[in-house]
Write a protein that binds this DNA or RNA. Sequence first.
DNA 1: CGCTTCGGACACTCAACGCA
DNA 2: GCGTTGAGTGTCCGAAGCGT
Length: 818
Amino acid sequence: MAQFDDDFSTSPVETNSSGTFAMPTTTPNSSREPSDPPTTNGKQSTPPANCAANASSGLNARSCTTCRKRKVKCDKRHPCSNCNRAAIECIFPGPGRAPRRSRKPPDTELLARLRRLEGVVQSLGKGIDEETEPVNEPVEVPKVEYEPVQPSAPDNFKVEDIRPPKNCGMIGRYEPNRADGETGSMTKEFGRLKVENGKSRYVSNKFWNSMSEEVAEMRDILDDDTEDEDDYPSPGSASSASANHQSFIFSFSSTILSLRNFHPPPAQIPTYWAIFKTNVDPVIKLLHIPHHGKMISQASLDLDHVSKPTEVLMFTIYFAAVTTLSNDDCIVQLGLEKPAALRKYRFAVEQALARAGFLNTQELLVLQSVLLFLTCVRRSDDTRYVWTLTGLLIRLAQGLGIHRDGQQFGLSPFETEMRRRLWWQISSLDTRASEDQGTDPSIAEQSFDTKFPLNINDEDIDPGMKDMPTEHEGATEMTFDLIRYSMGITVRRLSYAPPGEGHCRTMNASLSIEDKEHMIEDLHQYLEKKYLSHCDMNVPLHWVAATVARLILAKMWLVVHHPFSRSDAGAGLPQETKDRLFRTSIEVIEFSRLLETEKTTLRWGWLFRTYVQWHAIAFVISQLCTRTIGPEVDKAWMVIEVVFDDWGGTVTSNQRGMLWKPLRKLMVKARAERLKALEKQARFPLDGSLGPTTSLFNLTPGPMSTGDPSLDYSTFEMPGLVTDPVSASTPDSNSLSGLQLPFVPFAQPPSTDIMNATNGTDQWNLDPSVFSQDRLIEENDMSWTGWDDMIKDYQMETENGQSHPTGPQQDGNLMSWW
DNA sequence: CGCTTCGGACACTCAACGCA
DNA sequence: GCGTTGAGTGTCCGAAGCGT
């Protein structure tokens, strides 16, 4: 019994407390409390917060862990009298009993096969260790030659290699329609992939290639899957003993606890599914809606007998659906307060994952659920949780061979496609989670060969198909994600410099700005030709795809020219480039906000809201320390004030807030300069008059002049922002056209309400000469004033705060991509 | 004397098994 | 499918030992 003491969770349970200690009355065993363990059996299910409490008496159903360990009577209050007296923490275990260990005797056949394996393993080691004890049944195996694995970068690697091949856009090796001739050379690189009943297992070629013929016996043994897994669960089987020890990750002991009561009423499940289809699936295209919809529908008919992988998926869908709703919508549509619903379903997802033995899982469905779960958790949990579990997810995916293209293993088109979707979503999550933590992505480009998912709609493919469906020309349900994936590759190539010496590092470091611009332009041409030119801007998802593409291209351009990316911190940039950076940054911020707030795309705002445009914000504010007057500046101030009000309120309390603090200091400085300039303009207007803003100089002393970053400036009214017509504008469809950037212009959102507010005037497409009106504080180049200070502040924050391995650096890790 | 440790009795649960 | 069996699990009595 004692061996299970550590199995219990440390989740305290709130009940009424008693400060008095009473010695346990000496009662014969026969008269033990009748309420003594009405030991919760595995079918009982209650919410986690009070799951172990006896609802009627207010007492816990079980003894606290200390009393249990000491084998003394526990009064089951919280804290119990024994713990209270000893002044130690009183911890009650979760509900339910520890899972029983099987009474079934070890299988003789399994033992026999184990013995065979042992024999093979020992004989393999014979050549290495001459002193090895002789094996009972020696197997003659020649010494196996192992060769060290060489880095895969080719010797003739050149800058040109990173550019997309002219004939297939930029994707190159990931292009799905690769010539068959290449597959032959790939065969040698393949490991072995076994896929059956939704499960798969992958073994690297490094393992197989190292085997001699004699070791084929081991291969046969491993291949022999005739064993009944119900009797002897393989890794990943939910009943595996190890599965009982997976709940430690999620701090809960009773994985045998039924989660039945955590499901919403069956009649409400279609609502959750509908929300998921509308709000999540279009932007995270991972599932096959007809196939998985049927799965959910059937499962909801009998919630008592849902398979564990399906159970994980269902709770993930509930969680994802709630994540995308506002609190009001959550109450109206689901009848639940959003925070409570998030807590409930997150707990259920985590428990379901533990129950499904996700650490050993071979189920694609479980991995798909984990991906969706982490993507949604990222919206509300900014700790390292997502980053850490993403690493785990990558390992699990590699275990299933998701990083190898299913087509090469002869998998069905449907299976292949689902695996591709999963891998690229994992890759995307890896990039984003890494950026959150300021680390490099875990997935290296050389480590996988999974092709892009096909540019198709769900209706084009089904599980029974024998031949791969034909890709569509133009926009499909996959287009948004394909654009993200395409850009992700270029982003990595632009910004990622692996540690150590090697081709990749040398290559990245040697890229000139022109090379990078060339890469971005190539990407633009590829996206334009393949997707964007086919997009219908009246379709919200198409508009989002085009806008996001435009946004990322603009951000790439920003990063290439950004002070972070330059050894001189931007001092050597020509004024024209700085002007373009300034305007592009403002536009990036504006369109990011528009994606979150535009009513036709609001349903996907939950995803867009996880991207704060730090680099653009930082750059604009740093510029506002020196650009103090002019319509461009007025507009910038309006944009920045809104961003500070909105994003600032959501990030200050979390890790990304580390960057927010120095930004606030920079903001104070910029505001002070702005104030000085406005006062100066009021006294000496450029045109000799008092100027239009003079009457609005309702500048009040106080917060603005104190320099205290903790004060709230939200109520401060910027004079120039009230009367200047520019300030009332919204992002315009052709705003960058005057900047001669090689990108497609932003398009208006499907709902033109916002754009109509500008009366169609192109207020943002200013004449370049307008910049001459933007008065700089200093005529000489001081435009990076504040930038160095901000970087120092940030570094101090990261040193004083939580570990932030890389921080803002020249490889652009600070940048938030898509 | 107060307190802790721990062997072991007892109650409860449920997987395995036999039987109809 | 159902009843029985018995091993696994949880609780806590009470003897033994230790410290003050």
